[in-house]
Amino acid sequence: MPKRLQFPLFLLRKLLKVAFTVWVVTTLIFFLIRLMPSNPIEQYIQNLVIQYGMSYEEATSRAASLFSLDLSQSMFAQYLEYLKDAVRLDFGTSFLSPGVQVSEIIAARLPWTLFTVGTGLILSFIVGTALGAIAAYRRESWYEPIISGLSSFLSAIPDFLIAIFLILFFGVFTWWGRGSIVPIFQLRGNYGAGVNIGWNWPFIKSVLDHSFVPILTYFFSQIGIWVLLMKGSTTGCLNADYAVIARARGLRPRKILTSYIGRNAMLPIATEFAMRLGFIIGGSLIIEQLFVYQGVGLELLKATTNRDYPLMQGIFLIMTIAIVLSNLFAEILYSLLDPRIRVKGGSKHA
């Protein structure tokens, strides 16, 4: 196989796999909802009949228009219709707020979740890998046990406890007779009341104020993992033959730490990071709930408690796509970083 074709073909194969996975999940969502013992659509229809005294036909047509599906069609025809819509990211209208497109709701919530969870992830990744590398290089320092101990601790406690602690720390406790560090109302919602939404400083400041503690929560709930992963990975590379021989070759310690140990230690970590990117979209149900942060996670929670099936379908599907794509990204990243993977699938002696 010619070398220059290897990568495009690799990508094509992977993309087909992504498409297949997404299709399977989409299909699963469709049939799960329809084949559940208490078919939610049927239940909704019943609900309308009982609560609002509608006739069954009336209720059915109302449900059909809400879910944008034709219930008189065969299951297979409905499925095709659903697929066609899903491809266009059209999940119908929400059930809770009739008339509003599910995709609109998601589009409105997504930036908030991406911003907070993403910032927390990136910051924890940067700080965590740096600390992890330091902990590995300076295995015999006095601060290594502190770094490792704190990391193990942070990675072991559930994120909602971190959130509650931070809420208490920043918003409830008073310090030296002065008030709390952050006014408690800033720990609820995405921005303060009475600011004009747009690119103006009061709004941006309000957004930053409100997102600070949630971001800190995401940061602390993930940093431990990065430290421990990076420490383990770096320790594994410290005594690798090539690192020892690099020293025997008289290379400078800094060079060995970056080009020889660091590069290799980053391989599995970078992949893990890429994979976690996919989970950003789902947000965190509990954290967003605790901070009443209007993100995808909170929306999903609302959709679930209110049985807003179209919205649930939409969010699940978006999450699936994001996770599958980030897995693909991780694979591509790994193959770019590690020449040993790069040749897979191609001829070895190209």
Partner: peptide
């Protein structure tokens, strides 16, 4: 020059041999 016992991967797996020769001169 010291060559170690049982070194299976004496070379940095993510760098070309060329880089590793040049690194040695560089040092």
């Amino acid at each position: 020059v010291m060559m170690f016992q049982a070194s299976q991967s004496s070379f940095n797996p993510v760098a070309k041999i060329r880089t590793q020769f040049l690194d040695t001169f560089q040092a």
